[in-house]
Amino acid sequence: MTENRPQPVARLRGVTKSYVEVDRTREVLHGIDLELARGEFAVLVGRSGSGKSSLIHVLSGIDLPSSGHVELFGEDMSRASEERRTDVRRRRIGLVFQFFNLLPTLTIEENLLLPLELCGKLDAAGRRRALELLDAVGLSAMRTKFPDRLSGGEQQRAAVARALVHDPELVLADEPTGNLDDHNARAVLGLFSRLLRPSGKTLLMVTHSAEAEAIGDRVFELHDGRIAPRARSQSK
């Protein structure tokens, strides 16, 4: 750690997360320490139930840690109000889900415009950016369609575009290729590299896929709720 090192985008210190179930308390994250630097692509791997999604939720402010600190863009999110966390999320974070989660009642274009509207950027420039992104993910022709008219791969490309449309500094992707075939998975990973790298955005991607692992600058492994750096896989 040096004095002129830039401030990390995200910093987790001793984060734990536990869920109260019917007859027991289940701790899914144990003392997580993690820093994500600006422009960094980090990949988080781990088996099902290892706490990967919980980590994404805590990091995005969707959920609060049971203990420890979550700092986003220099602000302690673990002490922030619900409103503040929502505000940070809508302006500075983009989320991609395994099951796409496009709003079924909005067209593809409207799905992209929604984050802009939420953060008050629905102006001509914002609309232009949405169209450019649609073009970039190859969905210009589908912009007036509703999500149920698109294939899984197309929906996920639209979801990636939606996550980027409001120009977030941090993109969190939870198994973005987990529900796609190889061809579509490669296309989505290609989009991340193509659209995020040049603009210096930070990505934390949770994945099972070795191919996805390959695009990361750093790879972490989450095992039984504990995080540890991992050596690159052979596929890199």
């Binding site: 969707i62 409103e83 929502t86 505000d87 999320r89 989660n101 984050p115």
Partner: peptide, 15 residues
């Protein structure tokens, strides 16, 4: 789920 997604992408509880 739809509402959860809206919340996740930044819609406030009041919204």
């Amino acid at each position: 789920r739809e509402m959860g997604v809206l919340r996740a992408i930044g819609l406030s509880p009041a919204g």
